[in-house]
């Protein structure tokens, strides 16, 4: 199988590599680029653990051919923090106890970012709709909901009440 050239931007850096056509974006990110924050949970586009942003849109990297991402701007969870400062969504997930085992967390955070980038003050229903495709088995989702609410602009008090 012939390799083809793939150029894309990943977390702000230009990446050029050769991949076989049957390589998924998930495989390139995890194996070639070492971005193991991209998780494979079901491999069939259901659980959302592999969610990355492609030109700002949340997509399942397990169901996206790497070559389809040619020319695209990809953001993984590793690209969320800037200059050592966590993104407010990451900070809110920590403070609200929205992280338990952490396997769904990267995908959950990226799906939340995609939502808040479009709608900085979503209602509870809008958050639930945006995150419906991201499965969590630990939290019962309440604290994830709280965290995303807290990270939205409608909330000026991001710290959780003791």
């Amino acid at each position: 199988m012939k390799k083809q050239l793939l150029s894309m931007t990943v977390n702000g850096e230009e990446v050029n590599l050769a991949v076989t056509p049957n390589t998924t974006l998930l495989e390139v990110l995890r194996e070639d680029l070492g971005l193991t924050g991209v998780k494979e949970g079901c491999a069939e586009g259901v659980c959302g653990a592999c969610t990355v942003l492609m030109d700002g849109n949340p997509v399942r990297s397990c169901l996206t051919l790497a070559l389809e991402a040619g020319g695209a701007d990809i953001v993984t969870v590793e690209g969320m923090a800037t200059g050592g400062n966590l993104h407010p969504i990451q900070q809110a997930f920590i403070e609200h106890g929205a992280v338990q085992c952490g396997f769904c967390t990267p995908g959950m955070i990226l799906a939340s970012k995609a939502l808040l980038d479009r709608n900085s003050d979503p209602s509870e229903d809008e958050i639930k709709t945006a995150l419906a495709g991201n499965f969590c088995r630990c939290t019962g989702y309440r604290k994830i909901l709280e965290a995303v609410s807290a990270a939205s602009t409608g909330h000026t008090e991001p710290r959780r009440k003791e």
Binding site: G45, T51, P58, R60, L63, A111, A130, A132, G133, N134
Partner: peptide, 10 residues
């Protein structure tokens, strides 16, 4: 279809 936040973009 699927989940609005995800499948709809692809």
């Amino acid at each position: 279809i699927g989940a609005v936040g995800i499948q709809h973009f692809r």
